[in-house]
Write a protein that binds this DNA or RNA. Structure first.
Lengths: 210, 210
DNA sequence: GATTTAAGAAACCAATAGGTATCTTGACGC
DNA sequence: GCGTCAAGATACCTATTGGTTTCTTAAATC
């Protein structure tokens, strides 16, 4: 009882929705949890709402995660793992960076969800630490920039002497700040400003003015 | 009944706590509300906790603000108004900027509180809009940088041709990003990196290498 | 097909939230 | 000193939440 669709009937139009189990169910729950987080934020990231969105019930969640904070941790981890960025290789630093920034620029702001969670767990004593959440999410993005930048060094586009870690992080730091402050997709012209007016001038061997 | 201290007695050690009224009370509430926001975040910014922190009771708040969102709006406004930064004038761009960044670097992260509220009102339909909260808070900080930068232009420290609005915002954008991502006071050496390795090279007339 | 295991529905509990109503009492104007 | 008004305590209502329990039933295993 309670299944979504009639199941005994082999009627054509009926979705044969079966009861999910094990790993499949778990994946579905974590996907739903991430959806919930991006849609309504940490504040409404409750066991009830996640269960509803995953079309299952609370005990199913509690059998897997002791607390809501545990679920949060796994949700971010799950998404971080799924979200490996494609490292572009277009031949120029500029378009590589623009491609990378463009990828991060989805309609439903994943940064908002991440920072929302970080702040939540920052103010609450319990739960995952903010940096823990951060790491899972930002690590692979950082390494993507690193690869793009390394190739630019090989091509001679970049003066390696200027590449401090902070400068390597600059494009995504600025992107993230913009995404957080406006809570909207970052317009293309802003991405170009970040790359053309700030990052490239800082790292190119030949200074722009002379 | 219910007053904090005995009041009829003119005993020396006893705090003569009187009942606050009108504007005085309102200020006290808004201060307490801001404290609550920075201490425990948007999630725990509730009428009950604010009332408790202000040592008053819920009806007193509801007589002034119809909803919790109204109170939030006024709280941020109140603090934004109170928080006019001192514009330093040390004679060099570098130390002006470091002074300005240092000011923003309080122990209890006001950016966390602000972004926490922004995200809250972003995900909730109701309440003040994120940009509304942002404006009240960030406007005067921006103008402080502007003043410092203008003076540097007059002194010839800066090539005005390079001063796009985005570059003027760069120091505080990077500061804000750092504060948000680490949720700790930004260490001095990071402030110096922002100023010395990123901002100054971008705006000085004579390029660093060559 | 019988057994085991887990999914899911539903009801429940205690705590906390937003918001309101009632009543007492302190502060201020006169 | 007295009347008025607002501060503040308290209790209350309803909704939501974290978390648990119980029971039914579907799915995998043998």
């Amino acid at each position: 009882m309670g299944e979504i669709q009639e199941n005994s009937d082999e009627q054509a139009g009926a979705t044969v929705q079966t009861r999910r189990r094990g790993a499949e169910l778990e994946r579905a729950i974590l996907d739903a949890a991430w959806e919930q987080l991006t849609a309504e934020g940490y504040e409404h990231f409750t066991i009830d709402t996640v269960a509803a969105r995953a079309r299952t019930s609370k005990p199913v969640l509690y059998r897997r995660w002791k607390t809501r904070e545990d679920l949060l941790r796994d949700t971010v981890r799950h998404r971080g793992a799924a979200d490996t960025p494609v490292v572009p290789d277009t031949g120029t630093l500029r378009s590589d960076l623009l491609a990378l920034l463009g990828q991060a620029n989805n309609a439903r702001n994943p940064m908002a969800a991440l920072v929302s969670s970080m702040l939540g767990s920052y103010y609450n004593q319990t739960g995952p630490t903010p940096s823990e959440l951060r790491e899972t999410f930002l690590s692979q993005r950082g390494s993507a920039v690193r690869q793009v930048v390394d190739r630019a060094v090989e091509r001679g586009e970049i003066d390696p002497a200027r590449l401090t870690p902070r400068i390597v992080d600059l494009p995504f730091d600025l992107f993230r700040n913009e995404a957080m402050m406006t809570l909207k997709p970052v317009p293309d012209h802003v991405l170009r400003q970040i790359v053309d007016d700030i990052f490239i001038p800082l790292v190119t061997p030949q200074p722009p003015t002379h």
